[in-house]
Nucleic acid binder design. Structure first.
Lengths: 170, 170
DNA sequence: AGTTTATGTCAGCAATGTTGACATTCCAAG
DNA sequence: CTTGGAATGTCAACATTGCTGACATAAACT
């Protein structure tokens, strides 16, 4: 098909660095690891009748307090209608505070309430514990490689968003 | 909360290797990268009115032809009812062949048809192209680290499934 | 033979993605 | 200043894909 070159007697023993089999292993590793990556927060969220979408919203509002709906959905990569449902629940439940913009009244500036911060902490902690263990097991140089490959795998606009977050962080 | 130790004046400048900020960057990298990772197949699938679930089924049936529904759902980590819906569509559309087991007639052995293989190739190629580019950009040692961290991030049973797939592959 | 266990299918519900229609606010052209 | 269009966010309805529950069939155990 589109670009087929599937291990047809050349890739596997050539001097080229990447066989299709190696790439497939990477694909599967990504799939299995992402499940592990979300498993711990998912368990907490299930108890509270929330989902991954709520976690993502909490995470990025915490990361950039005062952010607007528009900005948030460009980072999350979902439609505003989809995000709206999640935000509405979080606001109703008193985890997020949505304030009408001062400069532009069409905008809503989003903040976590104390309870919102509390849940965000709980979720992030769960995820960090696993991440910390994985980093420790793999070692520092592995972590550098890990991040480098992930960054190269992003779409270019997400790479920009990611870089901005890193700068703003500290 | 459960294990809170969030950059409270100690983690960030201690001799410890992992600050909360570093961990958070890893978390966000994982989130953005996974979106890139699935973006290309998603576009193809959308044209065909299929979803990620169909892609995953095709991938692992291709990987282990003759596998059973039971085995497949343990790898995919979904319920059999959820998988069944997807498989039914693939069988009806002539991409997957479901044969009653010879030894145990309760089981169904799953195979890709020619058309199924064709679509699987198309999807995998799209994903491999991006993966290949990311690997190339990041370099060989980075890839080693990438895989090591991902593997450490999996749940233990998934790590086993992953290892088995690698062995069976070759 | 009869109960229990395993495998897979069918039906209906929940979470979360989508598009479409709309209200409010801002801004720019006249 | 007003008016028309663009931007922002909300509400409604639908599709995909998780889920649980109920069931049919085959195997296994007693």
């Amino acid at each position: 098909m589109s670009e087929g070159r599937s291990g047809s007697g050349f890739g596997s023993e050539s001097l080229l660095f990447l066989t299709d089999e190696q790439l497939r292993q990477g694909i599967e590793a990504m799939f299995f690891a992402y499940r592990g990556f979300t498993a711990d927060p998912d368990r907490i969220l299930a108890e509270l009748a929330y989902g991954r979408a709520h976690h993502r919203a909490l995470h990025f509002i915490n990361r950039a307090p005062g952010t607007t709906v528009n900005n948030l959905l460009s980072i999350l990569g979902v439609t505003k209608q989809s995000l709206n449902r999640v935000l509405r629940a979080l606001v109703e439940d008193g985890l997020v505070d949505s304030r009408v913009g001062t400069l532009d009244k069409r905008e809503r500036n989003l903040y976590l309430t104390a309870r919102g911060e509390e849940l965000e902490q709980r979720l992030s902690d769960a995820q960090r514990i696993r991440m910390r263990a994985a980093y420790k097991e793999a070692g520092p140089e592995a972590v550098q490689g890990f991040k480098r490959v992930l960054e190269a795998m992003m779409d270019s606009d997400m790479r920009r968003a990611y870089a901005e977050l890193r700068e703003s962080a500290q």
